[in-house]
């Protein structure tokens, strides 16, 4: 399966918890699209790697995605996944004030992986990701939203729930169980 996780303000904790729970040699591929503060371009991979059992990397353009690795959208680039699991980066204008934009990565995952895609949207302060999550659902994938009650900032998850019949609304711990049993 191809798991894509999107998050913004207030999602760091949930993301680190998810990554910490994923076992070594995980058979699925993970994509992360997280907003970060402008001008903070480095150090993020290191911070996320601290507790993770699987390698985390920022892909280069045209790298091939492999199972058991988590790929983080690089700062200031949109991240697409073309056919053949190949990354394509782009510096198009920010979408929803964001580059990387979660919508861009989610839509691309929806289009490439269809029913094999799992989209997870976490805490965040803008609407980026809502349309992308809908695209994953419409393409036959599974979509999960972090329970807004648990989110530090609910804007993103609420926006997604409003426009999509999501499969699960879950606390971080339940998302962890879901991913472990996949």
């Amino acid at each position: 399966m191809y798991i894509v996780i999107g998050g913004s303000a207030g999602s760091f904790q949930a993301v680190t918890a998810l990554l910490a729970s994923i076992p070594r040699n995980y058979p699925h591929t993970i994509f992360l699209c997280l907003h970060r503060l402008k001008n903070v371009r480095g150090g993020f991979v290191e911070a996320l790697s601290l507790k993770s059992n699987i390698p985390i990397c920022e892909p280069y353009d045209k790298d091939t995605a492999m199972p058991g690795v988590a790929y983080l959208a690089p700062a200031n680039y949109h991240m697409y996944i073309d056919a053949n699991n190949q990354f394509s980066l782009s510096t198009e204008e920010p979408i929803n004030h964001s580059r990387p934009s979660i919508d861009v990565t989610f839509c691309s995952i929806a289009n490439t992986y269809k029913e094999n895609a799992i989209g997870i949207l976490l805490s965040g302060a803008n609407k980026d990701g809502a349309l992308g999550l809908k695209a994953i659902k419409d393409a036959g994938g599974t979509v999960i939203v972090q329970s807004p009650d648990e989110c530090q900032v609910k804007t993103m998850t609420s926006a997604a729930i409003k426009i999509t019949e999501v499969d699960y609304i879950m606390l971080t711990n339940n998302i962890i169980d879901y991913l472990k049993n996949l």
Partner: peptide, 9 residues
Amino acid sequence: YSEKSFTRR
């Protein structure tokens, strides 16, 4: 051109 980013344009 890269398929997905071109399509987006």
